[in-house]
Amino acid sequence: MKYKFQLPDFRDSNFEIETSIWTGKSKLFKDDVQIEQSKEKGRPFLIPNGTNDLVKAFPKPSFPDFIPTLEINGVKNLIADKLKWYQYVLGGLPILLIFVGGLVGGVLGALAAITNFNIFRQEGTEASKYLKVIGISIMTFILYFVLVTLITELIN
């Protein structure tokens, strides 16, 4: 997933971070140039500040999101706006499949929830975002019951 943002310490620069929910690794770009990541503890990104100095930006996890924050000089900088509590509730409804469907339900529910959270952060009208999230949630439950029916039929 890619997110564009700006940092207060670098007002004239545009940043983009690319994160992987599978590996947890991130790549940071400043004005379309990839930023080097240090090997030291915390693996900070080394952002050049224009005066031949490097600013250390530490990627920090941000639960329940999969989008990290960047900590610079002790200040956490949000990459994407936090969702509202009701967006987490609505977007996370498919996770309830874990209680009904165990591993299969949990995997489908988690993938749908991650997709829903990303939809809430996309460009577009609020109405279209909510319609997409509701549609994905409904389709996830339908897909789960279709898969269970097919697996049951195959076993019997």
Rank of each mutant, 00 (worst) to 15 (best):
S62N: 14
Q122G: 12
L150H: 05
K82E: 11
A127D: 11
K30D: 03
F117M: 12
K60I: 15
G109A: 06
Y130S: 02
P94W: 05
I98F: 10
L108K: 05
T23G: 06
K82C: 03
G135C: 06
P8L: 01
F5L: 07
I98A: 12
F29W: 12
I72V: 14
P61E: 08
L143S: 15
T23I: 08
I114L: 13
T115V: 08
G106C: 10
K132T: 14
S38Q: 08
A113K: 03
L111W: 00
F145G: 03
L28A: 11
T140M: 03
P64E: 09
L90N: 02
L78D: 02
G101I: 10
N156G: 15
F63P: 10
T115C: 08
G42P: 11
T125F: 15
S20G: 12
K132Y: 13
R11W: 02
G74Q: 07
Q122H: 05
E36C: 02
Y3P: 01
E40M: 13
S62T: 07
Q122V: 11
Q34H: 04
L150S: 06
G42A: 14
S13V: 00
G106E: 02
Q122N: 10
L46W: 00
Q37R: 15
V55C: 11
T19C: 13
E71Q: 13
G135F: 10
Y130Q: 12
T149Y: 13
L93P: 00
T140V: 12
S137Q: 01
K2H: 03
F117P: 01
L147P: 04
L54Y: 06
M139D: 03
Q122L: 15
I119M: 12
